[in-house]
């Protein structure tokens, strides 16, 4: 069962230099109860993808399905009803919280807007319960953001996202602004909350080691497209797309005996007027003539798909 599905989703932005193809034909699905990790380097469109799926920005074309229903063209009023089912946590907790509002206020707003509680008692009970799940206490309700540490602020953001008991959360680099010792705590809490509230995550990050630890399935993005999708373990054991292979080799491991290689030369091409054929072609060591002309489709079987003319054929 899919909680979220996209079909050939595109989001283009107009700029002075031309059309920025931030998300350029992404088809993916998030299965109920799973964590789908999305990795990619800066500018690959992973954040835009997350925002488009939630319809925080309107897609240029393609379809978005939520729990089986097409939500692509839902109007504001109907979308608002759906908002409690899907939510988002951003990278920087400081700019996500209002400095003039207490933790209580932050949790109160969504509960009031969506008429989630009947009485003040029930509301407080609910708030305390969610704070406890995130490792915070009732006394934190009266605190302002500046009285909290960075990790606590992010836990409030997650609590706010979870208090409506959503079915789907987009976590966009939720621990990138935090120290490592705090990061591991947040990850554990997210893992626990997932079980308790029966929610599915789309976990967007540039930190590949981190995504490896938390996600069940993984999507690798390059220049607005998914280049490889599959079970996290499978992809790490045997990356198939040339970009995935090179990317994994570039990631430093916390082990002095394992050294990175720097197999990728050159830069990511600009998403303004991207290459006609495969976006990775200019940097790819395996390229063939077809790669320059045609963009490869994401193909494969048993949930393992790659978009590559050279290696894709061998897959299917």
């Amino acid at each position: 069962m899919n909680i979220v599905e996209t079909k050939n989703l595109k989001k283009f932005f107009e700029s002075k230099k031309g059309t920025v193809k931030a998300v350029n034909g992404v088809s993916l699905n998030v299965i109920k109860g799973e964590v789908l990790g999305i990795v990619g380097e800066s500018g690959c469109g992973k954040t835009t993808l997350g925002r488009t799926i939630l319809k925080l920005i309107h897609p240029t074309s393609g379809k978005i399905f939520f729990d089986g229903t097409d939500i692509t063209d839902l109007d504001g009023k109907n979308m608002r009803k759906l908002r409690k089912k899907m939510n988002v946590v951003f990278q920087d907790p400081v700019s996500s919280l209002n400095p003039q509002m207490t933790v209580y206020d932050h949790l109160n707003r969504p509960l009031e807007i969506h008429n989630m509680v009947d009485s003040e008692d029930e509301k407080i009970r609910r708030m305390v319960d969610i704070l406890n799940t995130m490792g915070l206490k009732a006394e934190h309700l009266i605190r302002y953001p500046h009285e909290l540490s960075g990790g606590q602020k992010q836990r409030v953001c997650i609590a706010r996202a979870l208090c409506l008991e959503p079915d789907f959360l987009v976590l966009d680099e939720p621990t990138s602004a935090l120290d490592v010792s705090v990061q591991s705590k947040i990850l554990k809490l997210l893992d626990r909350a997932k079980e308790k509230f029966d929610v599915s995550y789309m976990f967007i990050s540039h930190n590949i080691n981190l995504v490896r630890a938390i996600s069940d399935r993984l999507g690798v993005m390059y220049l607005g497209k998914l280049v490889e999708v599959g079970k996290t373990g499978d992809i790490f054991e045997n990356p198939k797309h040339p970009y995935t292979k090179a990317l994994f080799k570039s990631v430093p491991q916390p082990d002095p005996d394992k050294k990175v290689e720097a197999p990728l030369t050159g830069q990511v091409p600009s998403p303004v007027n991207p290459p006609e054929g495969c976006a990775f072609e200019p940097r790819c060591p395996y390229k063939e003539t077809i790669c320059e002309r045609e963009s490869p489709d994401l193909i494969g079987s048993y949930g393992r798909k790659i978009a590559c003319h050279v290696f894709g054929k061998r897959e299917s």
Partner: peptide, 18 residues
Amino acid sequence: SVPGVKESIEEFETIPGT
């Protein structure tokens, strides 16, 4: 607490406090 040393979330260790 660094991802990469431990494979899964369950194995992550955390340092209490801040």
